[in-house]
Write a protein that binds this DNA or RNA. Structure first.
Lengths: 344, 344
DNA sequence: ATATGACTTGCATACGCATTCAACATGAAC
DNA sequence: GTTCATGTTGAATGCGTATGCAAGTCATAT
């Protein structure tokens, strides 16, 4: 049999609270209390114990603590798409925010090939204190419900209004309207829209708000293309499709990575000038959006605020089951760069 | 006091093995065995128990299992830089590879601002079965040793030859030499080198191999600039510094994200033509390297193979403490695109 | 001097599962 | 029919910590 990770040989067993207690001549309870903030223990004794603990390299065993407290201090983070640079950035900030309040991040990567239910069953077996689902386009509503049932859960950038689920989400309507208004101010009148996954809530909100707004402004929707995924390549394909019809003077891509693919296709493959011939806007404000070649006009998702809100909900318990669920919309901001401009 | 994540109200306690056993009329041991592959239990009884478990929605509590087996099935992944797109891609594939053999990924984000020792103490308290350190430039050798001491550990893209630590690493020497040879074949003779963090082992290996090779080939090193970090902005600054001296006809950047920043600076800020005036090469082959505007010639790090090797070491236990440690070099491949070309 | 209360401390037990050990059943071999 | 090997099961215990409870200490108030 393969020995594998975790086989016991080679690891010297760490010292336990009981052993440390015996050395010092106190009870195991005392050791436990020394490490429990606010526990009933004399300051003097606590110091003594902590000093010995330091010397003996004693560390409380978090596993045992989990078992007896039935609280793990672990948050499951469910992700489905790390190839969009927006998400690594979010995950990084999120995991740092969680670490700041003493929570660890257990990562769950959901992809097409994998057995989702089996992976998510780990959420239950590991007793994670909370689940944060980051735009898991792979998850059906039923799976989502099953995975989060009975525990604290927050969805980021996916909204389920009717179900009893907490959502934290950039204000997609605000963003899409801002882009529409911006196109209008630039004199663009014939605009197209490119979605990533058409059924995702982020897309539906952006798309509907955008189309509604351009109608209000008297502009024409010349095309609507679904890329099939939120990727650079999908953006390229969609842009080519739109360019073939040759009747749009502006394109709003559902996110930045699509938009960047779109810009490359327009310039490299069909020789369009961006922004003169066709203006392009995206959504997210990923790092590449500010690269000069793209200089992408976009609607910024405020990562820090999103993380702050999520961490806050975890901290104050407002995402606990039993608490009323809420949908928090975080306001973003239009970033105007050079991928949009007057007709020229 | 804030209620916070994990407060007990609102969660109904899941059923335990003992309760399930009582319902069925068997012992708790039997339930445990039913869920333990290879355990001594009649196939018939196992099926019966599994059927009831399904009905009663019983799931073994992984925490309790950890405590009694002193094996967590959790791997700590220590990361310091998610802003370089290479790492999210690696993390994604890695966590999927781990999930495939039943291991979960606990993520540790190390950044300048954070208290590293405090964060890494969680590695010990949580009893992770193994630690994978991904190019943690933030970690001193001592901290690294402390964090991984006495447990299975693998460093990815950081090499510590003398210490007793397992390393899996792209063959930097092979890559740097390939770039040098490529420059030479193109007729470039005056080359510069840009490092990210000069003291990192990836940099030292690439730099030394590159410089050695260009000397062998009779080429001139016109400059060597340290960017101070592996970032787009650092690449820009370094490129400007080199362009100011105006005596290089090719630049090898220590990685792709630097190179991309460099290309933008050369083209946008100082009006150089890439590749005609200056050829540029990077290292990693991140997704952006294939974007047509950059079309970056680079040395590809074989992500899948790296992950395969790491997962294999975890699976066969060859990274356990007590086992002889090894440094595995994974061979990559030169990807020639249009950021390098003949003088023109 | 006694009563009261606030603090401290240790004992014992619970947390849920894995595993050892002994008991038992079954069937084959003699 | 007896013996032995093999396979199956349950009782009991351990994993390391947290915590309710009772006992104890000490100072203050009466």
């Amino acid at each position: 049999m393969a020995r594998g990770v975790g086989s016991s040989d080679g690891k010297r067993r760490p010292i336990t609270a009981r052993e440390l207690a015996r050395m010092i001549g106190v009870s195991q309870s005392a050791v436990s209390r020394a490490f429990t903030p606010g526990a009933s223990i004399a300051a003097e004794l606590r110091q003594k114990i902590l000093k010995f603990a330091e010397e003996q390299d004693y560390h409380p065993n978090a596993i045992a603590s989990m078992l007896s407290k039935s609280r793990t201090n672990i948050v499951g983070i469910v992700v489905s798409d790390m190839s969009n640079p927006f998400y690594p950035a979010l995950i990084q900030k999120l995991s740092q925010g969680l670490q700041r309040i003493g929570l660890q991040s257990l990562l769950f990567n959901i992809t097409k090939g994998s057995n989702i239910e089996e992976q998510l069953s780990a959420l239950r077996r590991y007793n994670v204190d909370a689940v944060i689902v980051i735009s898991a386009t792979m998850l059906s509503g039923a799976t989502l419900h099953w995975a989060t049932e009975g525990r604290a859960a927050i969805l980021i950038n996916r909204v389920v209004e009717d179900a009893d689920i907490n959502c934290v989400c950039c204000d997609n309507v605000e963003g899409a309207r801002a882009i529409a208004d911006h196109f209008h101010e630039l004199g663009r009148r014939r605009v197209a829209y490119v979605s990533g996954l058409s059924h995702t809530t982020t897309n539906l909100e952006r798309q509907n708000a955008f189309i509604t707004r351009i109608a209000e402004l008297g502009m024409t929707l010349t095309g609507r293309v679904d890329g099939g995924e939120y990727s650079y390549e999908a953006g390229r394909r969609a842009a080519l499709e739109i360019a073939a019809k040759n009747n749009a003077d502006a394109i709003f891509f559902a996110n930045d990575i699509l938009a960047i693919g779109g810009i490359d296709a327009l310039r490299e493959d069909v020789g369009k000038r961006v922004p003169e011939d066709i203006s392009v806007a995206g959504f997210d404000d990923i790092p590449m959006a500010s690269w000069p070649h793209y200089a992408l006009t976009t609607f910024r998702q405020p990562l820090d605020e999103i993380v702050t809100v999520v961490v806050g909900m975890l901290e104050d318990g407002s995402c606990q089951p039993g608490q009323p669920s809420s949908v928090r919309r975080i306001s973003g901001g239009l970033i105007v760069r050079h991928s949009t401009g007057p007709l020229g």
